[in-house]
Amino acid sequence: MSIDITIEDDRWEALGLSALCDRACAAALDHLGLDLDECEISLLACDDDRIAVLNADFRAKPVPTNVLSWPEADLAAEIAGETPGAPEPDIMGEITLGDIAIAWETCEREAAEQGKRMEDHVTHLIVHGLLHLLGYDHVRDADATLMEGLETTILGELGLDDPYKDLDGP
Rank of each mutant, 00 (worst) to 15 (best):
E157L: 04
L167S: 15
L36F: 05
G156H: 04
C46M: 03
E110V: 03
A144W: 06
T123C: 03
T152F: 13
E113V: 00
M147I: 04
L146W: 02
L158S: 09
E110D: 13
S18L: 11
W70N: 10
D47T: 08
A112C: 05
G81E: 02
G149Y: 07
T65V: 09
D4K: 08
V122E: 03
K116D: 00
R109D: 00
S2H: 13
L125W: 09
G81W: 11
G129F: 09
W70S: 04
D49R: 13
T106C: 09
T83E: 15
A111N: 12
R109K: 14
G115Y: 05
G93L: 13
F58K: 04
E94M: 12
R23Y: 06
Q114N: 06
W70D: 04
R11D: 00
A86I: 11
L160V: 09
A112W: 10
A73L: 08
E157R: 05
G115F: 03
G93M: 15
I102S: 04
E78P: 06
C107Y: 08
G81T: 01
G98L: 06
T153M: 07
V122S: 03
V53P: 00
D47M: 11
A28P: 04
G98N: 12
A27C: 12
N55E: 03
E94A: 15
C21D: 10
I126N: 01
A52I: 07
D49L: 14
L29K: 00
I3N: 05
A73W: 10
E88H: 11
I3S: 03
R117N: 09
D22T: 14
P87R: 04
G81Y: 10
E148S: 05
D120Y: 00
E108V: 10
C21L: 05
G159V: 07
A19P: 01
W70G: 03
D4R: 12
L54K: 07
V139Q: 04
D99R: 15
P71D: 09
W104Y: 14
D37P: 07
I102Q: 13
D166N: 14
A26L: 07
T65P: 00
P87E: 05
R109Y: 12
E105F: 12
D37Q: 12
I5L: 02
L134F: 02
L134G: 06
T106E: 10
M1A: 14
D74E: 14
D120M: 12
